[in-house]
Simulated scan of single mutants.
Amino acid sequence: MSFRTRTKICGLTRAEDALAAVDAGADALGLVFYPPSPRAVTIEQAADVVADVPAFVSVTALFVNPTVEQVQSVLDAVRIDLLQFHGDEDEAFCAQFNRPYIKAIRVRQASDVVASCVRFPGALAVLLDSYKPGVPGGTGETFDWSLVPQSDDLKPIILAGGLNPNNVAFAIDQVKPFAVDVSGGVEATLDGVEQKGIKDPGKINAFLDEVYRVDANTRKNKH
């Protein structure tokens, strides 16, 4: 396990939330280009969200079964460093855009993870999310983390699905992922109702503080 778990704040819809994530120390930011999602952004919105994101923070564009033209129109207008595919895209589709990409997998059994690492040789990592029929991601639900194989032969693992400040430390201890990805778990609530796409800076900071804490403990225990 690396001494440092990378972090991504996904589903951003506002520039101030992107900058709050940067200030808290996030490694990557995620923009959702999937219209059915409550966190979806237009190209114009996306460009505004990341306009002031500084160097060394990666901007990721998330798609679900897009056309080539849809992906290219985003790349032509928005600063995008990494592509993230959540649908039924194959290796050839994912690899054609001259951008590094990651492939999301909805985990039902351990063999899903191993098979996906083989099926997507060009992926820089595989993102593991919860399986829910008909929902390509963003369920806000965790999955059985014991299904994630512990093997040096796998691609880097990005853990997603239902993470929040209260469970991310346990998740890192159990899965030992390369990175963690959070969306709903750091969103604002109003009268007890989650405000999808609106982030809570306090929750972002709490989430990242937990990641730093467990990483520091890992580092200490190794020495």
Score class of each variant (00 low, 15 high):
residue 5 T to Q: 00
residue 5 T to W: 01
residue 6 R to F: 12
residue 6 R to T: 11
residue 6 R to I: 02
residue 7 T to P: 01
residue 9 I to A: 05
residue 11 G to N: 09
residue 12 L to I: 04
residue 12 L to G: 05
residue 13 T to L: 05
residue 16 E to Q: 14
residue 20 A to G: 07
residue 22 V to E: 11
residue 23 D to N: 10
residue 24 A to C: 12
residue 26 A to H: 10
residue 27 D to I: 11
residue 34 Y to M: 07
residue 34 Y to D: 14
residue 34 Y to K: 09
residue 36 P to W: 09
residue 38 P to I: 10
residue 39 R to A: 08
residue 43 I to L: 07
residue 43 I to V: 15
residue 55 A to V: 09
residue 55 A to R: 10
residue 55 A to Q: 13
residue 60 T to S: 11
residue 66 P to F: 09
residue 71 V to Q: 01
residue 74 V to D: 06
residue 75 L to K: 08
residue 76 D to A: 15
residue 77 A to V: 02
residue 79 R to D: 10
residue 87 G to S: 05
residue 87 G to R: 02
residue 89 E to F: 09
residue 90 D to Q: 08
residue 94 C to N: 07
residue 96 Q to P: 03
residue 98 N to G: 09
residue 101 Y to D: 04
residue 102 I to S: 05
residue 105 I to R: 00
residue 107 V to E: 05
residue 108 R to C: 14
residue 111 S to Q: 14
residue 113 V to E: 01
residue 113 V to R: 06
residue 113 V to A: 02
residue 118 V to A: 14
residue 118 V to P: 04
residue 119 R to Y: 03
residue 124 L to D: 08
residue 126 V to C: 12
residue 127 L to D: 08
residue 128 L to Q: 03
residue 128 L to T: 06
residue 132 K to P: 00
residue 133 P to I: 01
residue 136 P to V: 00
residue 137 G to A: 07
residue 138 G to V: 11
residue 139 T to P: 06
residue 141 E to L: 15
residue 144 D to K: 11
residue 144 D to R: 14
residue 146 S to K: 13
residue 148 V to A: 07
residue 150 Q to D: 12
residue 154 L to F: 12
residue 155 K to L: 15
residue 165 P to K: 00
residue 166 N to D: 15
residue 167 N to E: 11
residue 172 I to F: 02
residue 177 P to F: 00
residue 180 V to M: 03
residue 181 D to I: 01
residue 184 G to F: 07
residue 186 V to R: 05
residue 186 V to P: 02
residue 188 A to S: 14
residue 188 A to G: 03
residue 191 D to Q: 11
residue 191 D to L: 05
residue 191 D to P: 00
residue 192 G to T: 04
residue 192 G to S: 13
residue 193 V to Y: 04
residue 195 Q to P: 02
residue 197 G to I: 04
residue 198 I to H: 15
residue 199 K to S: 04
residue 199 K to V: 09
residue 200 D to N: 15
residue 201 P to T: 06
residue 201 P to S: 09
residue 202 G to L: 10
residue 202 G to F: 04
residue 204 I to W: 14
residue 206 A to L: 14
residue 208 L to K: 01
residue 211 V to Y: 03
residue 212 Y to P: 00
residue 214 V to D: 02
residue 218 T to K: 05
residue 219 R to D: 04
residue 219 R to Y: 13
